[in-house]
Deep mutational scan, measured.
Amino acid sequence: EVYKVKIKIERVLPNGEKVEEEITIEVEGMSEEELLALARELAAEPGVRIKEIEIEKLPP
């Protein structure tokens, strides 16, 4: 199964400015739980906050 994972994050820059970013990846052969863990890892940097995680199962 192939999933499209869209992660919206908010990053706080050293000057205090907040910037929103969106990361989209396609992943194959992982469960939804593994995808959530991967998304959290991607956003685990200091000053980064996850705003939204969207997981979509793509048709075969």
Rank of each mutant, 00 (worst) to 15 (best):
P59K: 08
G29D: 09
Y3L: 07
I23S: 02
E33A: 12
T24L: 12
L36H: 03
K4S: 07
I9W: 15
I50Y: 01
E1C: 15
V2D: 02
L35D: 00
I55N: 00
N15G: 08
A43H: 06
E1F: 09
L13G: 07
P14G: 10
E32N: 13
E41A: 14
R49E: 15
N15Q: 03
T24P: 01
R49G: 06
E45A: 06
E28G: 11
L13D: 05
K51A: 05
V2S: 07
A43R: 02
A44N: 12
P14F: 05
M30I: 12
A37H: 08
V48F: 03
L58V: 06
R40T: 15
L35E: 00
R11H: 02
E28I: 14
A44K: 14
I23W: 09
S31L: 08
L58I: 07
P59N: 09
R49K: 15
I25N: 02
E26V: 14
E26Y: 04
E45V: 05
E54Q: 09
E41N: 13
E21D: 12
T24F: 11
E28H: 08
A39M: 11
E10Y: 02
M30G: 13
I9T: 06
E26F: 08
E33F: 14
V12I: 10
A37T: 09
E1G: 15
L13C: 04
E20W: 02
P60R: 00
I23Y: 12
E26C: 06
L38Y: 12
V12D: 14
E20V: 04
A37Q: 12
I25M: 13
E10R: 01
E22K: 06
A37C: 15
K8M: 06
Y3P: 01
I55P: 00
I50A: 00
K51I: 13
E45F: 15
I50N: 00
E56Q: 11
S31R: 07
S31F: 10
S31A: 11
V5F: 03
G16L: 05
L36E: 08
E21F: 03
L13A: 06
E26N: 05
I50M: 01
R11W: 04
E10S: 03
L58N: 05
E32T: 15
A39K: 03
E33I: 09
L38T: 06
P46K: 09
V27L: 10
N15S: 11
L35C: 12
V27G: 06
L36I: 14
V27I: 09
N15E: 14
K8F: 10
I55W: 10
I7N: 00
K6T: 08
S31D: 13
A39P: 01
A44S: 15
V2F: 09
L36W: 13
L38Q: 03
K8D: 01
P60W: 02
E52P: 00
E26T: 08
K51H: 04
E1W: 09
A39T: 07
L35K: 01
R49Q: 14
E41L: 14
P60Y: 02
N15V: 01
E54V: 12
E33S: 15
P59E: 10
I25P: 01
P59V: 12
S31Q: 09
L35V: 15
V48P: 00
I23K: 06
E33Q: 10
E28P: 10
E28L: 08
E20R: 02
E26A: 08
E10F: 02
I25V: 05
R49A: 12
I23T: 02
P60E: 05
E56N: 05
K18M: 15
E41H: 08
K4G: 02
P46I: 06
E32M: 15
V12W: 06
P46F: 09
S31T: 04
P14Q: 07
S31K: 09
I9E: 00
E56F: 13
E21G: 07
K4Q: 13
E17I: 14
V2Q: 04
E1N: 10
V5G: 01
I55V: 05
L35H: 03
I9H: 01
N15W: 07
E34N: 14
L58H: 05
K8Y: 10
K51C: 11
E1K: 08
P46V: 07
K57L: 06
G47V: 01
I55H: 01
R40N: 13
T24K: 08
E22R: 03
E33C: 05
I7P: 00
E20N: 10
Y3I: 06
I53A: 00
E45N: 03
K51W: 08
P46A: 13
L36Q: 10
E10V: 04
I53H: 00
E10T: 03
I50G: 00
E17Y: 07
I7S: 00
I7W: 02
E21A: 05
E21P: 01
I25R: 11
A39L: 13
K4P: 00
R40I: 04
E56M: 13
A43E: 09
L36A: 05
E22T: 11
G16S: 03
L58G: 06
V19H: 09
E34I: 15
P59D: 10
A37K: 14
L42M: 14
K57I: 07
A39I: 08
V5I: 11
E45H: 09
L58W: 09
I55K: 01
E56Y: 06
